[in-house]
Amino acid sequence: MTGKTKENNNENYLNYVKTQDPPTQHFKNCLSAFGVGGLICCIGQFIRFMLEYAGLTGDELAGTTSVILIFIGCFLTGLGVYDRIGRHAGAGSIVPITGFANSVTSPAIEFKTEGWIYGMAAKMFTVAGAIIVFGVFSGVLVGLVYFFI
């Protein structure tokens, strides 16, 4: 017999483990996620206003704002600051676009030691790959629906 079977599971033990785990502080996490996520969005909005003031419009404006935020995310990851923010931010730092930048940059930094091609380039998307695959996939699905309606 191979593979994981349901009979292996010891429900009593799993429940016991659950009671022993220190509880996740949902309220605190939500609050810090709200704060940090909101702050990142405010910074984004501030950049957007500044660029609008500088004369950018439409897609150019949205694109430039995203690029600046992505740069900030990558830069802070490289400095080793972003993971410290992330440790206290609940999900507030992982959900905005800076978090996506972080999820690409962090494996790139981590796997650089294995070489530029087989390490950094190949492993860069170990975390973000799933987001890209399902992002593109759901984009296609929505696009098809939109096309036929």
């Binding site: 785990d21 220190p22 509880p23 996740t24 502080q25 996490n29 990851t77 080793g80 972003y82 993971d83 923010i85 992330g86 440790r87 206290h88 931010a89 609940g90 999900a91 730092s93 992982i94 978090g99 972080n102 999820s103 940059t105 962090s106 494996p107 930094i109 981590e110 796997f111 170990t126 975390v127």
Partner: peptide, 16 residues
Amino acid sequence: RQYRYPLELGCTRPPQ
């Protein structure tokens, strides 16, 4: 790195 996430990934470690 072997078992979990890259060190620099900004995720919150669960309390356990």
